[in-house]
Write a protein that binds this DNA or RNA. Structure first.
Lengths: 184, 184
DNA sequence: AATCATTTGGGACAATTGTCCTTTTTTTGT
DNA sequence: ACAAAAAAAGGACAATTGTCCCAAATGATT
């Protein structure tokens, strides 16, 4: 649930030293938006420190949190690979330090660097496993099952999530979350 | 919803000619299982003709259909990339003709062929877009919205799906599907 | 300490969905 | 054509979830 990718982090750490590539470090404060759903994007972020959330804002005003991202997670790469506008919003849940890779650099590496390709393939495959397992689980089990799983993960990661975010992660209302919490 | 990938199909078409690679063609009859959730897998399939469904079978006995796959779609690649047992079941909805790529060949290509890497990255990125958008939509909108969208897609693809599969795709019971159909 | 504003939790009712089981329709075999 | 079997549809009730709104708790300000 809190995704990390140490391999990607050390890969990018070493690329950072090569000044040719124009990779920089940037800070975002808590609650700022790194990517805004539907807008153009021209860089790729890799989280060095902190936690972000990726979420859809649906037309009916409801949020759905896809993932919580931490060390070594890439942001904006899907948009770059598929040449589309931002799929979802990405917001900083804590202060963030991120590597920023310019579009040109990322595309060049994609076209030439087998190591990047390998790491990305593994990351995307993993996300598919996660996202699809979760979709299935959330559709076919009760909210209480989903909540129990979420609390377990949260415990294990030692991470605290606001109730609003928990509800958005489960795809339910706050009211239902409160009820489910009682029921445990 | 009915995923295809013409680029992948022509790529594999040309690889097939190289006999060194040991890629073969195989037929599956309607309703047969290509991959069984939880079992080991040692090859990658690419659909040349026909339609398959990927679905989870949850412990409570319910099915959730992830995708309907057709021409040019890869099966088993995630398992190969992440070295895991089959994530879900894959069943033939129509008679199928598929290319079969041995594990060794696929891994070698992964390690050396930038073209394969590129095509796969684009395919996986696209699946993430699909799966996550759908998860969000299904969680945050009513069944009727989801059904309307499904019927629309089905119409557009000129594909017919059994009611049981429609329900499994929407993650609801047959009873609920029938009710929703009335409601339109 | 008192007041106001903001956040958090829950009551009441309506709407949605699941479960179970019966009824209706379709298919199959003779 | 008809009976038997199988598949599909729907009724009735229970459980779950959402909506709307109010009450309690918390926090900031004077």
């Amino acid at each position: 649930m809190l995704r990390t990718n140490t391999e990607f982090l050390s890969y990018i750490d070493s690329l950072y030293k090569d000044e040719q590539l124009g990779i920089s470090l940037q800070n975002f404060e808590k609650d700022s938006l790194l990517l805004r759903q539907g807008e153009k994007n021209h860089r790729v972020f890799v989280i060095k420190e902190g936690i972000a959330k990726c979420f859809f804002l649906e037309e009916n005003g409801k949020d759905y949190i896809l993932e919580f991202m931490s060390k070594g997670q890439v942001l904006g790469e899907i948009e770059m690979i598929r040449r589309i506008d931002c799929l979802c919003n990405v917001a900083a849940l804590t202060a963030l330090q991120v590597y920023v890779i310019p579009a040109a650099t990322f595309k060049e590496l994609l076209a030439k660097d087998l190591m990047l390709n390998k790491i990305l393939l593994e990351e995307l495959a993993d996300r598919i496993i996660n996202t699809s397992s979760r979709a299935s689980f959330q559709q076919l089990y009760t909210v209480e099952h989903g909540l129990a799983k979420l609390l377990e993960l949260q415990e294990k990661q030692g991470m605290e999530i606001s109730k609003e975010d928990m509800a958005a992660y489960l795809g339910i209302t706050l009211r239902s979350l409160n009820r489910a919490l009682k029921g445990l």
